[in-house]
């Protein structure tokens, strides 16, 4: 089959970004965390915080995910799993490190089985500090990441509009 010529590369990129910002699918991976951050991630899905109103969906397979939410100081056993999951995700992919341990190793710094921080293994795009971060902080981290994903061309109405929408939702949430 002859490849179709892309007549509007800018438009297409804008559309992609628009779709990505409005409905990012996130994957959660625990690379040796104490569960504190994990229950807070789970709490963001439940009625009080309701992450899904931002179009964010938590689901199981790395092959369908846009954003990887990563918790915990990386243990030696978890390292290869983390790399594998990261390589299974499709481009473009983003990583959010959640919690003090994921940022630097936290209290587990210096433990013999801990590498200390997600960024030692894979590149990280957003950091959410806290032990554990509150659900609001996790939502804020993910939304800030999404807001920064404006179309590379800039000035594309669709994508800019989308990130404005996200910001508006955040403001609404804060005023609640």
């Amino acid at each position: 089959m002859k490849p179709t010529k892309n007549r509007h590369p800018d438009r297409l990129a804008g559309l992609k970004t628009w779709a990505r910002i409005n409905s990012p699918w996130v994957l959660h991976f625990n690379s040796g965390s104490c569960n504190g951050c994990d229950i807070e991630i789970l709490a963001t899905l439940t009625p009080r915080y309701d992450l899904e109103r931002f179009g964010i969906k938590l689901q199981g397979s790395p092959r369908h995910a846009d954003v990887l939410l990563c918790t915990g100081a990386v243990t030696r056993q978890a390292r290869s799993r983390l790399l594998r999951i990261y390589s299974q995700m499709h481009e473009p992919k983003f990583v959010v490190a959640i919690g003090s341990c994921a940022l630097s190793g936290g209290v587990f710094q210096g433990c013999y089985n801990v590498l200390g921080g997600i960024e030692k293994v894979i590149p990280v795009d957003a950091y959410v500090p806290g032990c554990p971060p509150r659900p609001e902080a996790i939502i804020d981290g993910v939304v800030k990441l999404l807001s920064s994903l404006k179309a590379p061309q800039g000035g594309d109405g669709t994508a800019a509009h989308a990130s404005e929408m996200v910001e508006k939702l955040v403001v609404e949430h804060e005023h609640r």
Binding site: N30, F108, C111, Y112, N113, V114
Partner: peptide, 22 residues
């Protein structure tokens, strides 16, 4: 054993108060 972090060993290099937090 996938999330084994070595907490028990780590307690030996921290003092009694620090250990509460780990």
């Amino acid at each position: 054993g996938y999330a084994h972090r070595g907490v028990e060993k780590a307690t030996e290099s921290r003092n009694w108060v620090q250990n509460i937090y780990i």
